[in-house]
């Protein structure tokens, strides 16, 4: 049969069509508003991300009173800086020291502190990271290029729907006199998951 490519539009992938079907069903019944869906996409593509978390860490490094509040009630302290919302309600900050290195995983799904880190990187959502972070954290850290000396304890925190974690990395050496903004530049996403360290 002759085929004119201009007389139709190729449907998107099966997955995309399933999403459209869900959206249409829920919209028609008034469960969701398409504008609200677009607003959520916009928020996560442009407004939340690890820069938020980096600002929190830099403030904790320079303001001891803020750091105490952050360790005491992280959700409230982050809200002071304007970072709050879903998946940030019950947040706990775990502090790296010269004796302890913390790293975060979600063994069951992919719970992650969205308001301060945005959405998780692909490796955080992999079966490999989920299982290996718990079984052999030091080996996983090495593959991320992080060598933890044997005399330093590695603590692995398993996020849940109720409680999510953010790592407070150690302040890098050689940063005396750095402004808060300059310090925030040193805070990588991975350093706040614990699969990296902050570096000057």
């Amino acid at each position: 049969m002759p085929h004119d490519s201009h007389d139709h539009t190729d449907p998107p992938s099966d997955l995309a069509l399933r999403v459209k079907a869900l959206e249409t069903a829920l919209t028609r019944k008034g469960y969701v508003d398409p504008d609200a869906i677009d607003a959520v996409v916009d928020t996560f593509e442009t407004k939340v991300g690890p820069r938020n978390g980096a600002a929190v860490i830099a403030k904790a490094w320079t303001d001891p009173a803020f750091k105490r509040r952050l360790l005491d009630d992280a959700s409230a302290a982050c809200a002071e800086l304007g970072f709050s919302g879903q998946q940030g309600e019950q947040l706990k900050v775990v502090e790296n020291t010269d004796a302890v290195h913390n790293m975060v995983v979600c063994t069951l799904c992919s719970c992650y502190p969205w308001p301060v880190l945005g959405l998780p990187p692909s490796w955080y959502k992999s079966h490999a990271y989920r299982s290996r972070a718990v079984i052999e954290p030091r080996a996983v850290l090495q593959e991320f290029g992080v060598d933890i000396p044997n005399n330093k304890e590695v603590r692995v925190w398993d996020s849940t729907a109720e409680l999510r974690y953010l790592v407070l990395p150690e302040l890098p050496a050689g940063t005396d006199g750095f402004t808060e903004d300059a310090l925030a530049e040193l805070v990588s996403r991975d350093s706040m998951i614990g699969t990296g360290v902050a570096q000057a």
């Binding site: 869900l22 959206e23 869906i37 692909s122 490999a128 593959e143 991975d190």
Partner: peptide
């Protein structure tokens, strides 16, 4: 991880638009 999961710094939040829609639909619902 280095071979399984190449450098992911700077990867897009969503790889395809339907992923963003599915995510946002869940949050909204």
């Amino acid at each position: 991880f280095s071979e399984l999961l190449p450098n992911t710094v700077g990867e897009p939040t969503f790889n395809e638009p339907w992923q963003a829609q599915a995510f946002a639909l869940t949050v909204t619902a």
